[in-house]
């Protein structure tokens, strides 16, 4: 019974992934986001079949565990790009560091000003980093992984639709700076847009995405203490 439920959860999720990916590849519209569409399909199926969320949890745990080794794999592109990393280390570390801090502090301050509940605020802090980091950062500090991932997707969608225009409007034209901004501000979705601008922008965005995740995770304890000190 337990094994069957897990099998069902995994097959349902794989099916939802394949379907939403096919839809995205066909229409290429940024609002057809694979994560939201896929999760929407899974949720709709569970609701339609009157399966409680609790039954999905065991399968969900197994699938999410694999996110760990997958994230560790991000060291591979980082290593492949190490000469680029070395050549632009000043821009990268200053840009990504400042961006990661600005993202957490501004999001946190607005959440505080708006009186959002603590768990929502904590799920909002890692909004600019890629999901595997955001999920763990939210979990460690007492936010919700699911809410954090939805906020990450919202940020990425917004960033990939308007990021390029905003940077151009602000006179930021250098390819390295544009790539770093897109990767730091809008993680994987921004990186995809950066690759559409060019190889150089894309590589920088990929580096920035991973480094922003590491930086955000490192600074998060400090920012949380600053925002929620009693």
């Amino acid at each position: 019974m337990h094994g069957l439920t897990i099998l069902f959860s995994v097959l349902l999720t794989v099916g939802a992934y394949l379907l939403s990916k096919a839809l995205y590849l066909r229409y290429r519209h940024p609002l057809l986001n694979i994560v939201l569409l896929g999760a929407g399909l899974v949720i709709a199926t569970l609701l339609a079949l009157r399966i409680p969320y609790q039954s999905y949890v065991p399968g969900q745990r197994i699938m999410t565990w694999l996110l760990g080794p997958a994230t560790v794999g991000l060291a591979v592109p980082l290593y492949r790009q190490r000469s680029l990393l070395r050549r632009h280390r000043r821009e990268i570390f200053a840009g990504v560091g400042l961006g990661a801090l600005a993202s957490m502090l501004t999001a946190g301050l607005i959440a505080l000003a708006a009186g959002l509940p603590k768990d929502v605020l904590l799920s909002l802090l890692p909004k600019s980093v890629t999901i595997p980091f955001a999920v763990e950062i939210a979990r460690i500090h007492g936010g919700s992984p699911g809410l954090a991932s939805a906020i990450v997707v919202a940020t990425g969608t917004l960033g990939s639709v308007f990021g390029g225009t905003l940077l151009t409007w602000a006179g930021i034209k250098a390819p390295v700076a544009r790539g770093l901004a897109l990767g730091t501000g809008a993680h994987g979705q921004g990186t995809a847009m950066a690759f559409m601008e060019g190889e150089r922008q894309g590589s920088m965005a990929g580096l920035a995405m991973t480094l922003a995740g590491i930086t955000t995770a490192t600074f998060a304890p400090l920012v949380v203490r600053l925002l929620l000190r009693h």
């Binding site: 969320y53 999905y56 997958a70 999001a107 959440a111 809410l147 906020i151 997707v153």
Partner: peptide, 30 residues
């Protein structure tokens, strides 16, 4: 990688009310 994000996001099932109640503040912050 995107595949692994889907089961995480299914957790949203439990958070529908948050968007309803705090949607504007969340959007502004984002």
């Amino acid at each position: 990688l995107v595949f692994f994000f889907i089961p995480v996001a299914v957790d949203l099932m439990n958070w529908g009310g948050v968007f309803y109640r705090y949607g504007l503040a969340l959007a502004l912050a984002i």
